[in-house]
Amino acid sequence: MANIKKIKGMLTTAIFEVFEKMFYVFSEPVQADGENYQMKSSINFSGPVSGEIYILLNRAIAETMVKNMLGLDEDEINESIIADCMKESINMICGNFLRKLDPDRVFHLSIPTFELISKDLHHGQEGKDQELHLTFAADDGNMAVVMTAPGIL
């Protein structure tokens, strides 16, 4: 297991790897800015450590991810495909992070979920205890990844 700084580094690297390898989206860490996110995808994990990771995105980034991953045109993209790609993204981020956190032990991942969110849902979530909140800027706006894991944060 690792300290908070290492955990933040591992989660950031996991996010970069997933977004760059699978979605060809390049981003950089920024300070949280209260962007109005429109969708959320989350996953729970259990094992040596238990917790939840979720991602918040706006539609523009989600559409870019789908276009890049599947090579689709704009008129071929629908809610179902977006939800599918978002769930896969958080699944890969979580699995990739846990491999870095403890490569020798087995974690169990839940089936990811997806939901459209209201504008104000994410406000007030930043900076909670036992929560790691990372924000990234990409060409189409910001995205946030939040991890709650009481055993390590």
């Binding site: 790897e17 997933v18 390898k21 699978m22 699944n91 890969m92 979580c94 699995g95 990739n96 846990l98 491999r99 403890d102 490569p103 020798d104 032990r105 087995v106 974690f107 991942l109």
Partner: peptide
């Protein structure tokens, strides 16, 4: 995405011939 060494062993024991990690 689940690429721990234990998970890989489990998959190989159940007959997997190869393993690809996402991403």
């Amino acid at each position: 995405t689940e690429g721990s060494s234990e998970r890989m062993k489990e998959a190989l024991n159940r007959g997997a011939k190869g393993f690809i990690k996402k991403p």
